[in-house]
Design a protein around this nucleic acid. Structure first.
Length: 932
DNA sequence: CTAATCACG
DNA sequence: GACGTACGTGATTAGC
């Protein structure tokens, strides 16, 4: 039948269907071979429901097509190279499913249309226009707002999820203008998802207002001078070109040359045989049965195992049996494992090494697991003689494959894009492999999965996870290597013992993965895991391996000076006290001050001893010399022992640099933690302490570059709590603490004193921490009643803050967690507790979304940074919560600042559009003190 | 091994 | 009405 009057064309936005199916469903895999199949399954279900819903209806289509995007480069990229530039890459699990969705469409006997280099939207637009011109009706099944341009004259949209028809009125409701002016509004408003710039500062609301006033975009731009608002007028005049470009980008192409005609899209009957064969191949049992029922035919039989007979065992209740752990002795056995891994497409892997320091530890063996309950260990460099041999032996033990041979055989597997490598704390193994010339990818990490789901509930180490989720206590490493000074390295462990321990780790990791993978979707943290956790692993690994240069001579000179100062202070202290005692013992200091000298304010701690924290001593120091000297001594002692002494021990003999280790799962809020050594708490607040940063230096011909977010947590607070006054202040670049002080104390900005500003600053920080009168009073050293008065006044001025706090606590009490703007969940198990813990949990719940969102922002920046600076002579070295430190060639510093700043300031987008700008301060110098 | 103290954001 | 509090970390030391 030729398409014409009385015909009804359905156009299905296939690409949108696929993404929706992918994100809505857990990551199902085909049972026989583990092929990811979730999106295909969801897609088929949608098609089935679609067909069911239209069968025999009076409004049934006469013609139908599913239309897909094809190719990533379209004519819009030629117009504007940034078009869709901030799109996240297609998830790895989705990629292989794309061709299967085309086959699925054909299996359902529906026309499947795609054209290389064109977006589905343009094909849909062209078909819709042709159908309309031929006098027929069109329904577009999509919720994509871009397609709303086409509505009218017999063309409607149908949102398949909400099952809502969108006609002319629907479009006007959404855009404030009719379909023919939708393009104009979009051109002005832009689109952060597709990266269409539009007119800065103008959204849909303002855009429709302007278009309605002037009639069209062209008219508006020609008569822009008439606009009253100065900022708007200026934008429209200055950004005219950008707006006109935006229009070209959003304008759908109705005049494509199509290699097919409408007539070819005529609805065809489903062919049961063809469809059921496809569903059987995909192993969709439920859907096959439903389709077979609907068609009134026998459902196909789908075997539980593939023709090769590989049983895929689940983790449930399968016992741990060391007898099923194999020791790999020869290349034939290894090849068997490699074949099995290749066939399956994933493997759990773990490395054993001589130590916990990945920069120095050597590879001792590798364990692998593909099926739960079965695993192997490949010993590589175990020593002969073993633990009992007093002197050990440097001879290699018998029956081991050569390290080089094994690495050569495994390298193609470890680097194969189609084979997923699963680990527990993969950063560690990735670094070990990197030092052996293997770039392991792609990866999954059970530790990070647990963190994404369970932050705040418990730790994420293997022992914790195995006990909680598998009901199994793994062999303690102590049983093999001992502890304390008698500890041995893993290469001295007898191989047979090592097999049981190491293979078990791979087995546990695999079982945890099988359990966690579907849970990620159920808990709705897949995006967090895939965009904030997993991609950070290689970035951190790279930073840690790079390390930062530390000048030992600077440190050792300072250590000497500190030692002298301490000795001198110690003499003075003993003199003042009238006796010798250990100044480093808080208990003895307490006895001297509060016991012997009888000073006021001595409180006893849990252990019954006097407590002597700095703030108490500071109060005493106004009247007495002794506590003042003790405070001086403590400061110097801290700097010497923790920094100038300890840091020297961390300088790697191989690189001359210090390599910290970042713990991705350390802080429940999403922050990183740094250890061995901790480079996130290098002194900066005190003048003396700051000098330690002079020892952190740039290499010859390079400089250190520090970029830090300005007031990021307060900006996020302004956004999430929706405080207009704060937002405006940030937009105008005002001094936020001065502005707060001015609001609170009714002091004009030009009469602001440092003291009033300081108090307002303390309140601003207090708010982020879940303020209390007691805490603020202690911080500001003012009476509690006065502090409470400040807080009351603050909430009066910014009532939105109180609402935010109340809402957050309420949410936590209802759900047991709070969330960041990017969807990270932080569990709050203590929130409904009674007693003193309740206050703690409340404040933590208030703080977590703010601290966590800031942490998410800088993570996003870090993940994007390697690409952004790839062409520049720069390396990212350190992260200190809101600061990134780089080492760059001297002459490229400005360029790097520009590139890195852009990434950092735009890091929230496109996922989140903050109401406040993020700004980044930059500094550079030969050392960290100068750069900061 | 834990508590106390203090370094950072 | 009393209680006990600023949020998040890691390293070092003393002292059991």
């Amino acid at each position: 039948m030729a398409f014409g009057k009385g015909c009804h064309l359905h156009l299905i936005d296939g690409s949108a269907y696929i993404f929706r199916a992918y994100h809505a469903l857990p990551p199902l895999t085909r049972k026989s071979d583990g092929l990811p199949i979730g999106a295909v399954s969801g897609f088929c279900n949608m098609l089935q429901r679609y067909i069911d819903g239209n069968n025999g209806g009076s409004d049934a289509p006469t013609h139908v097509a599913v239309v897909f995007d094809k190719g990533s480069h379209t004519f819009r990229n030629d117009l504007y190279d940034q078009y869709k530039a901030n799109r996240e890459a297609m998830p790895e699990e989705l990629r292989p499913q794309i061709p299967l969705t085309r086959r699925a469409t054909e299996a359902f006997n529906i026309a499947c249309k795609e054209i290389e280099g064109f977006e589905a939207d343009d094909i849909i637009a062209t078909l819709a226009c042709q159908a309309r011109d031929a006098g027929g009706r069109v329904t577009i099944l999509s919720s994509d707002k871009d397609l709303m341009q086409l509505v009218g004259d017999g063309v409607e949209m149908l949102d398949p999820m909400k099952n809502r028809r969108i006609d002319r009125e629907g479009v006007e409701e959404k855009f404030g203008v009719g379909p023919e002016r939708v393009v104009d509004v979009q051109a002005l408003a832009g689109d952060s998802v597709d990266n269409v710039p539009g007119a800065p500062g103008i959204g849909i609301k303002t855009a429709s207002l302007l278009i309605n006033e002037f009639g069209s975009l062209e008219e508006l731009l020609d008569r822009a001078e008439e606009i009253k608002q100065p900022k708007r007028r200026q934008t429209l005049i200055e950004k005219r070109e950008q707006i006109e470009l935006s229009k070209k980008l959003v304008q759908l192409d109705c005049d494509m040359e199509l290699p097919f005609t409408l007539d070819e899209l005529e609805v065809r009957e489903v062919e049961p045989q063809k469809l059921l064969e496809f569903l059987a191949e995909m192993e969709f049992r439920t859907l096959s049965k439903r389709v077979a029922d609907a068609l009134d035919v026998e459902p196909p039989v789908i075997m539980d195992t593939d023709p090769g007979g590989v049983e895929v065992e689940g983790p449930a209740d399968l016992p741990f049996t060391p007898e099923n752990y194999e020791r790999v002795r020869d290349m034939e056995a290894l090849q068997g494992w490699i074949d099995r891994i290749t066939e399956r497409g994933y493997v759990a892997i773990d490395t054993e090494t001589t130590g916990l320091n990945e920069m120095q530890a050597d590879l001792v063996g590798i364990s692998l697991a593909v099926d739960a309950g079965h695993a192997c260990y490949i010993p590589l460099t175990h020593r002969a003689g073993g633990a009992d041999d007093l002197f050990g032996s440097d001879e290699l033990a018998e029956g081991q494959l050569a390290l080089d041979d094994v690495l050569a055989a495994l390298k193609p597997v470890l680097e194969d894009e189609a084979i997923l490598k699963i680990g527990q704390n993969m950063k560690y193994d990735a670094k070990i492999f990197a030092r052996n010339g293997v770039a392991i990818a792609p990866i999954d990490d059970t530790m990070l999965m647990s963190y994404a789901m369970n932050a705040g509930l418990h730790g994420h180490g293997m022992d914790t996870l195995a006990e909680r989720y598998l009901g199994h206590t793994p062999i303690p490493i102590k049983e093999l290597i001992g502890s304390g000074k008698n500890q041995i390295t893993f290469d001295r462990v007898a191989i047979d013992e090592a097999v049981k321990y190491a293979a078990e780790d791979a087995d546990i990791t695999l079982r945890l993965w099988q359990r966690f993978k579907p849970q990620l979707h159920q808990v709705q943290v897949t995006t967090v895991y895939e965009t904030l956790e997993r991609p950070l692993v290689p970035v951190l690994a790279e930073m840690e391996m790079t390390g930062i240069k530390v000048d030992r001579s600077v440190l050792s000179r300072m250590s000497g000076a500190f030692a002298q100062k301490m000795a001198q202070l110690e003499d003075e202290i003993h003199e003042l006290a009238g006796e010798k005692f250990n100044v480093g013992s808080p208990a003895q200091v307490g006895e001297i001050l509060f016991g012997k000298m009888g000073l006021e304010g001595g409180k006893r701690g849990k252990t019954g001893k006097y407590s002597t924290p700095a703030d108490v001593l500071e109060d005493l120091a106004t009247e007495h010399d002794l506590p003042a000297r003790i405070l001086d001594w403590r400061q110097v002692s801290k700097l010497k022992s923790t920094y100038t002494d300890a840091l020297q021990d961390h300088i790697s003999p191989d690189t001359g640099r210090v390599h910290t280790s970042y713990l991705q799962t350390g802080a429940s809020t999403g922050r990183l933690a740094s250890s061995d050594p901790n480079l996130q708490n290098i002194p900066v607040r005190s003048e003396e302490g700051r000098r330690i940063r002079e020892a952190f230096v740039a290499d010859q011909g390079k400089v250190l570059l520090s970029l830090d977010y300005s007031q990021i947590e307060l900006r996020i607070l302004a956004h999430v709590a929706g405080i207009d006054a704060l937002k405006a202040a940030f937009h105008e670049g005002q001094d936020i603490h001065a502005m707060t002080a001015s609001e609170m104390f009714d002091v004009p900005l030009d009469e602001m004193t440092p003291e009033i500003r300081r108090q307002a600053k303390a309140i601003n920080f207090g708010v982020i921490y879940g303020i209390s009168g007691f805490g603020l009073a202690r911080n500001l050293r003012i009476p509690r009643s006065e502090a409470q008065g400040f807080i009351d006044r603050y909430f009066e001025r910014f009532p939105g803050i109180r609402d935010y706090m109340d809402d957050t606590v309420k949410f936590a009490k209802e759900h047991g967690f709070v969330q960041t703007l990017f969807g990270r969940k932080i569990n709050t198990p203590e929130i409904n507790a009674k007693g003193p813990g309740a206050g703690f949990a409340k404040r933590a719940a208030i703080n977590a979304p703010i601290q966590g969102t800031a942490a998410d922002v800088i993570r996003r920046a870090m993940i994007r940074m390697p690409d952004a600076i790839a062409e520049l002579p720069a390396r990212m070295l350190l992260q200190v919560h809101d600061e990134l430190l780089f080492e760059v060639d001297e002459d490229a510093a400005d360029k790097v600042v520009e590139a890195a700043r852009e990434i950092m300031e735009g890091a929230a987008e496109p996922a989140v559009k903050l109401d406040v700008p993020l700004t980044v301060d930059a500094g550079q110098g030969a050392n960290w003190a100068e750069a900061h």
